[in-house]
């Protein structure tokens, strides 16, 4: 195990996220996105954020990706059914993204050289430690997020339901 593991996983993350946005078939995009999220899970494990790694694995790779894949299969979109934007617009989009990178990287470079990341306490990202913080300092946001999830569920059912009067 050496420091190069981080760079290898970072390379994989960038490579697969590029494949997500550039692959023609949306089903391939979803599959590449699953691999990208798996590399994010590896990053969390390397940061010793074990709770986040498990949650990322279950929620993103499990639930959200199944939802994407399910909708994609349900809608039956073929490869050629949706055209692509003109090359000019694509170039403009890529250049705009590059400008964003340059701006952010420039502002990071303006800072002093950063210290190496050092894990000060081993149990920072464990369930016990995070649970204590979540249920003491962040109790109100936690309860509010439950209301958010409930309203999202109601909203999704209402939106996806067929209108009875019209249909």
């Amino acid at each position: 195990m050496s420091i190069s593991l981080f760079y290898f996983v970072a390379f994989l993350t960038i490579f697969f996220s590029l494949l997500v946005i550039f692959s023609k078939n949306p089903v391939h995009s979803v599959l590449y996105l699953i691999v990208t999220f798996f590399t994010f899970t590896l990053h969390y494990i390397m940061l010793n954020a074990q709770f986040l790694a498990i949650v990322n694995f279950i929620v993103y790779m499990g639930a959200i990706m199944v939802l994407f894949l399910f909708v994609l299969m349900l809608l039956n979109l073929n490869e050629g059914s949706i055209g692509s934007k003109s090359n000019l617009l694509k170039m403009v989009g890529v250049i705009a993204g590059m400008c964003l990178i340059i701006t952010l990287v420039g502002s990071v470079k303006a800072l002093n050289d950063s210290d190496p990341l050092i894990l000060q306490t081993q149990d920072l990202g464990l369930v016990k430690n995070l649970g204590k913080v979540l249920f003491s300092k962040f109790l109100l946001p936690f309860e509010l997020s439950s209301i958010l999830l409930l309203s999202a569920m109601v909203g999704a059912v209402l939106l996806a339901k067929k209108d009875i009067k019209q249909g």
């Binding site: 981080f6 390397m46 940061l47 990178i101 050289d113 950063s114 190496p116 081993q122």
Partner: peptide
């Protein structure tokens, strides 16, 4: 595994996220 991040500068995480 967590030993492997010892020494990765914070800047590189910022760059990756950017």
């Amino acid at each position: 595994l967590t030993q492997s991040i010892q020494g990765v500068p914070l800047n590189h995480y910022i760059l990756l996220s950017t």
